[in-house]
């Protein structure tokens, strides 16, 4: 297993380096002077020259990249142009808010998605299955931003039960953002669980378990679900990617002080060091989460471990 982990970790290096090239290169995608782009046309000359100096814009591009990468490896992503605070500090203060939102959303999505998928698959083509299937399809088709606004209209404006925005502490502030962020993940997990369970139920070992006279509950949960869960683990991991994207939108709607909103604010104010920092943070977290999923997958399915030896 240690060898497997090491191999997977080594495979990450070129990917993360590649992402860093893209993140750094984004600023150079547009023709024109990056310093001018960040400060705007009417910036004072001294400020402009200072930024050019700071970004090392007079140096060849590859030297600029290596300097940026060297600093990034020491967790120095430069300073925010708007707040003048270090980008890493800006991200570190906001990351916990995004993390708690994402983890809660995945948790809720898994707790809803897996049982819903199992219920659907064990009663194929029943009215319950049809309703759950349609709901799941609607869940993956619903725009996150619209769903957030509709929840605000219903639960904050009309019913007055829950606060429409902010994160002042109480659990009531979490309800709407977590539902907004978790719905599409729950829907994807339901769809995947249903599909894999339907396959598992027709496998020989399930028939054997039934033939042994085990009760249906045990057959479904101990035999079929255990095997059906493998692909579901991957889907849950992949959901984190959608969740990061969803966080950008959800945090904007609910004025949630996480890094998603930081990204949108930074893009609007052309604060490129912050944009680069947030994108890099998202990419590294996504890659790491996928690594964890892979390892979990290998732990759950020993055949995969063997293949890497």
């Amino acid at each position: 297993m240690a060898q497997f982990v090491l191999k997977r970790l080594l495979m990450l290096v070129p990917v993360v380096l590649g992402v860093s090239v893209i993140v750094f290169g984004l600023l150079y995608l547009t023709p024109g002077d990056p310093a001018l782009l960040m400060l705007g046309e009417h910036a004072p000359q001294e400020q402009y020259l200072a930024l050019r100096e700071k970004l090392g814009l007079d140096l060849p591009v590859h030297i600029q990249y290596l300097r940026w990468l060297g600093r990034a490896l020491q967790l120095d992503l430069g300073d925010s142009i708007r707040s003048s605070r270090p980008v890493t500090e800006e991200i570190a203060t906001r990351l916990p808010a995004t993390a708690e939102l994402a983890v809660l959303a995945v948790l809720v999505a898994t707790l809803i998605g897996i049982p819903a998928g199992v219920i659907s698959a064990t009663r194929p083509n029943s009215w319950l299955d049809n309703i759950l299937t349609v709901l799941a399809l609607a869940g993956v088709s619903m725009p996150v931003f619209w769903q957030g606004l509709m929840l605000i209209i219903i639960f904050s404006v009309y019913l007055g039960w829950l606060p429409p925005s902010g994160r002042l502490g109480g659990w009531e502030y979490f309800v709407l953002p977590v539902i907004t962020l978790g719905t599409s993940a729950a829907a994807s997990i339901t769809r995947m669980t249903r599909a894999t369970m339907l396959e598992a139920i027709h496998e020989d070992y399930v028939r054997t378990a039934r033939a042994k006279g085990l009760n249906e509950r045990r057959v479904i949960y101990r035999h079929a679900l255990r095997n059906a869960l493998l692909p579901v683990v991957t889907i849950i991991g992949l959901q984190f990617g959608n969740l990061m994207a969803g966080a950008v939108i959800t945090e904007t709607i609910f004025a949630w002080p996480g890094i998603g909103r930081l990204a949108v604010d930074a893009i609007r104010t052309r604060d490129y060091p912050v944009v680069q920092g947030v994108v890099m943070t998202f990419a590294v977290s996504y890659v790491l989460i996928n690594l964890i999923v892979d390892l979990l997958y290998a732990y759950l399915d020993p055949r995969l471990r063997v293949r890497y030896h």
């Binding site: 070129p14 990917v15 993360v16 590649g18 992402v19 090239v21 893209i22 993140v23 984004l26 990617g241 959608n242 990061m244 994207a245 950008v248 990204a263 893009i267 944009v275 994108v279 998202f282 990419a283 996504y286 890659v287």
Partner: peptide, 14 residues
């Protein structure tokens, strides 16, 4: 692989 390291919406946003 590198492009896949960024969730597609975030890549588009960037």
């Amino acid at each position: 692989d590198i492009l896949l390291a960024l969730p597609s919406f975030l890549l588009a946003l960037a």
